[in-house]
């Protein structure tokens, strides 16, 4: 099956994804392993459970915080950002 390729941005980088792929999978394929910084210790975190259970892969998508990169589908023109802290 031929799959269309789409593009979205992560911070200031352009990332390619296959349609249907999750934001997290596309970012990992682009070797982007860190997705957020924790609130208190400012530690880097990335995909851990990969199935929407752990809430460690949180990113900001089109201005909305706390989106799980591993389950949210990449859409053309999406503006994805590193989440810094706040996850209330």
């Amino acid at each position: 099956m031929s799959q269309s390729e789409i593009q979205f941005t992560f911070d200031d980088k352009t990332i390619s994804a296959l349609s249907g792929q999750s934001v997290g999978a596309a970012l990992l394929a682009a070797n982007q392993r860190s997705l957020r910084k924790t609130r208190f210790n400012k530690d880097k975190r990335g995909i851990f459970c990969g199935i929407g259970v752990c809430f460690d892969c949180l990113v900001v998508v089109d201005g909305i915080t706390n989106q799980r990169a591993c389950i949210i589908e990449a859409k053309p023109g999406m503006k994805v950002q590193t989440q810094d802290g706040s996850n209330a």
């Binding site: 296959l18 999978a25 596309a26 394929a29 392993r33 880097k44 995909i47 851990f48 990969g50 199935i51």
Partner: peptide, 18 residues
């Protein structure tokens, strides 16, 4: 980042081809 669950690695591969 880089420490994952086996299920996570599996779902990235099976579900997203990564």
């Amino acid at each position: 980042p880089g420490v994952m669950t086996p299920g996570g690695v599996q779902s990235l591969l099976k579900g997203h081809g990564v």
